[in-house]
Amino acid sequence: NKEHILAQKEVLTPIEYEHYVKHLFDIGEITKELYIELSS
Rank of each mutant, 00 (worst) to 15 (best):
Y35V: 03
G28I: 01
E33P: 09
K2S: 11
L12N: 02
F25M: 09
I30L: 07
V21E: 00
K2T: 06
F25R: 02
I27G: 09
F25E: 01
F25L: 12
N1D: 14
I27D: 13
T31M: 06
L38P: 00
E10L: 13
I36E: 03
K9L: 13
I27A: 15
I15T: 10
K22G: 08
Y20N: 01
L38S: 01
H23P: 00
H4G: 11
P14K: 14
D26F: 03
N1Y: 09
E3D: 15
L38Q: 02
L6F: 08
I36G: 12
S39W: 09
A7P: 03
L12W: 03
P14E: 14
I27S: 10
I30W: 01
Y20E: 01
P14L: 15
S39F: 13
G28K: 03
H4N: 14
H23S: 11
E18R: 07
K9A: 10
D26K: 10
K2M: 14
I27Y: 07
I15S: 12
L38R: 00
E33D: 12
I36M: 15
T31D: 14
V11E: 11
E16F: 04
T13D: 12
D26L: 05
D26M: 07
K9D: 01
I30F: 01
Q8R: 04
P14G: 09
T31W: 04
V11Q: 12
E29W: 13
H4Q: 12
V21G: 00
S40N: 06
I27M: 15
L34T: 13
H4K: 07
L12Q: 05
K9Y: 06
E29M: 09
V21W: 02
P14S: 09
H23G: 02
A7R: 05
I5T: 03
V11W: 15
T13K: 09
I27K: 10
Q8W: 12
T31L: 07
Q8Y: 10
T13H: 10
Y35H: 03
G28E: 03
I36P: 01
V21H: 01
S40W: 12
H23M: 08
L24A: 04
E16H: 04
S39V: 03
F25Y: 11
E10K: 06
Y35M: 11
E16S: 06
E18T: 11
H23F: 12
L24I: 04
K22E: 13
Y17F: 13
E10N: 09
T31Y: 05
E33G: 07
A7W: 05
H19M: 05
Y17I: 01
I5A: 05
E10A: 08
I5K: 01
V21Q: 00
S39L: 15
I30R: 00
Y35L: 10
T31A: 09
I36Q: 15
T13A: 10
E3S: 12
A7V: 07
T13V: 06
V21P: 00
I30D: 00
K9T: 04
K32M: 13
F25W: 13
I15D: 14
G28F: 04
L6V: 08
L24H: 02
P14H: 08
V11R: 05
L34Y: 06
P14F: 11
P14I: 15
E18Y: 10
P14N: 15
D26E: 12
Y20D: 00
E29F: 14
E29G: 11
K9Q: 11
L24R: 02
S39H: 03
L6G: 05
T31H: 07
K2P: 11
E10Y: 08
I30G: 00
T31E: 10
E37L: 09
K32N: 15
L38A: 04
Y20T: 02
A7H: 08
L12R: 02
H23R: 09
E29T: 14
N1K: 09
L38M: 05
P14V: 06
I36W: 04
S39T: 13
L24Q: 08
Q8I: 13
I30Y: 00
Y35F: 14
K22N: 12
D26N: 06
G28T: 01
A7N: 09
K32P: 10
L24G: 01
E10W: 07
I15Q: 10
K2Y: 09
I15R: 07
Y35E: 02
I15W: 12
Q8D: 02
E37R: 03
L38F: 06
N1E: 08
E29P: 00
I36A: 15
H4F: 14
F25V: 02
S40Y: 12
G28D: 05
K2W: 14
Y35I: 02
I5L: 07
K32H: 14
D26V: 12
E29K: 07
I5N: 01
I5G: 01
A7M: 10
I5H: 08
V11N: 10
Y17H: 04
S39A: 10
K32Y: 12
Q8E: 08
V11G: 10
E10G: 07
K32F: 15
E29A: 12
E16D: 14
L6P: 02
G28Q: 07
I36H: 14
E29I: 14
E3K: 07
K2H: 03
I27L: 12
E18M: 13
L24S: 03
Y20L: 11
H19G: 13
E10S: 06
Y20H: 03
K9V: 08
Y17D: 00
E16L: 08
E16Y: 04
K22V: 08
G28W: 03
Y17A: 02
H19F: 15
L12G: 02
G28M: 05
E18I: 13
E33Y: 10
E3T: 08
Y20Q: 01
K2I: 13
K22T: 09
V21F: 02
